[in-house]
Write a protein that binds this DNA or RNA. Structure first.
Lengths: 179, 179, 179, 179
DNA sequence: AATGAATGAGCGTTCATTCAT
DNA sequence: CATGAATGAACGCTCATTCAT
């Protein structure tokens, strides 16, 4: 990859990351290109769909977030590992203004985005749930996707207290069994 | 209030209700005024903020939804009454395309909207929670507002299965108590 | 119609006529609105399709051109009347830069335009052809539409000599009969 | 000429021919370079003007079309040879989407194009006209260029019926003499 | 009080052309 | 010589809001 291309790509990803942080993921395209000092065409060349840019911007962080599950699994007992990681995942989402909305918007501009995130995160939460269920700490009839989506729904970037309380409630729901 | 003013107001509310149902609450203003056979200025006179129109449109239904809690309380035991009403409330939100998003969007156009809904619904859910806690069916350390907001977060108009499963999980979380 | 609306409409039609003359009928919309000192929306309100604007701009002139056939019919013998009017029609088209191309472009922006022009002109040329054929001056097996289209094809705004020579040839073709 | 240069040139010509066939002669440049697996700069090096590319692409076919006149002249009597060749020429143009329009568009991108085609075709039609006039089958006061241009004007790729009828009329015009 | 025409900034997107690599 | 990434002006169009009528 040519160095100037690399430079432009980096500039775009950096600019997009900053803009996404402050303005959310559906900020005007022009703001990103302006910040990156790059023509509009350059952005469209690298990221024909807005979803492609979002995915690219968050890919590393997504991977890191997914990886974190291993550490929790290794260090904590299963239910605690699950709990920790869900909170970790919530923080991840909270930092991405507008991502939550985009994920379930149905807007064609975001096509492919939910799929990408699911592919990465569903296995992670599935494993955590299985381990916790195997340990007898939670019930085993809850789908990984539901949990993932629930956390995404519940995240409130501006109200961490609420998010934490709801996560507790959600995990308690997983712990609850009939009786 | 002059009769023609009254007529215009009614036309606007009716039109907006229909448009909101089909196109969601951030449908173009013009579609509403066109359907109501009313000038754009007339709408802005009565509802300076889009939130005002939404609140007005849904006021009656909000009231009805809140009232329904009484019936549930009278007919069911406390936890069941709570559960029933939360599902009722979820259906109410599911029917209002885009309302959920608008409620937490932070968009200045929707200023005042969350407050209005809270004023009406928080007391309702507070009462249901208190009764259920008093009966020993659920714990007592969960804030009404949190529950309300959680249901709004969780509602998925196009995926009732998910909504129902999550409501179950949420209520189970309320039932869970430490041990 | 309110006077300001009338004024804007006039400004638009005048501006469009001027722009069409110099830049052709697919000049950028913005150039027209700029010249008319009018917002883009105003143009779109009155003329949702570009074809609508073109039709409106040329309507009066189209009518005048069609009407002219009467005078020729009244004053000249049939074949001469036909000949004169075809040249008149050619001049009309020559003055409308790009109209010819637009008429047969298939571009959806020009939808409805050919139809409008045909509706107006086909009867005119049909009558002229019939009269000329009745007088024995030309053959009777040529379709009005073909003649109309042929003239449109042949018109060369920048080369009146060519246009005139070809018109002669075309009319001679009409005069020719087998032997 | 270096073999790689030759290869690129061939690829460009082949690609352009295919694209012109399907998308017309003002298809985006990029589509051509992409199909040829060649950089944009390579195209611009060889064909600084779009017209240069068009001329190069059609050169062989132009030559073949011009050559065909000889065969007609040899096999048919003069007027018939003329008639046949004009229809042949019309088919040639009809197959080149957008060429007709480009020829008389005045667009600077097509600069030089008309000249190239004239150089090749005018002598051909001149000879055919002369022969036909010499045989007494047609008049002798019509310029070759006019006939050529008229055919180009008249060609309608999507309406062969019209094209044929107009060609007949045109040739009849040539046959007509005063009378 | 009501109208609804007008505004015009703002959007996403395309594409001929240039020029660093 | 060739590449192909980058440019960036230009386009058509939308729509919340204002304000002359």
């Amino acid at each position: 990859m040519r160095p100037d291309v690399r430079r432009n790509l980096d500039a775009l990803l950096t600019a997009a990351a900053e803009i996404f942080e402050t303005d959310g993921v559906d900020a005007p395209v022009r703001r990103i290109t302006a910040r990156a000092n790059v023509g509009a065409g350059t952005l469209y060349r690298h990221f024909p769909q807005r979803a492609d840019l979002i995915a690219a911007v968050f890919r590393r962080e997504v991977d890191a977030c997914a990886e974190a599950a291993r550490a929790f699994s290794a260090q904590e007992e299963p239910v605690e590992a699950l709990s920790r990681w869900l909170r970790h995942f919530a923080r991840f989402l909270a930092a991405k203004r507008g991502l939550k909305t985009a994920l379930h918007s149905g807007d064609p501009a975001y096509e492919g985005l939910p799929e990408y995130f699911q592919q990465r995160f569903v296995p992670v939460v599935a494993e955590l749930l299985d381990a916790a269920a195997a340990s007898g700490g939670i019930r085993s009839d809850v789908a990984p996707y539901d949990v993932l989506r629930a956390v995404a729904d519940i995240v409130a970037p501006d109200d961490d207290g609420y998010t934490q309380r709801l996560l507790t409630l959600l995990i308690d729901g997983l712990r609850y069994r009939g009786g």
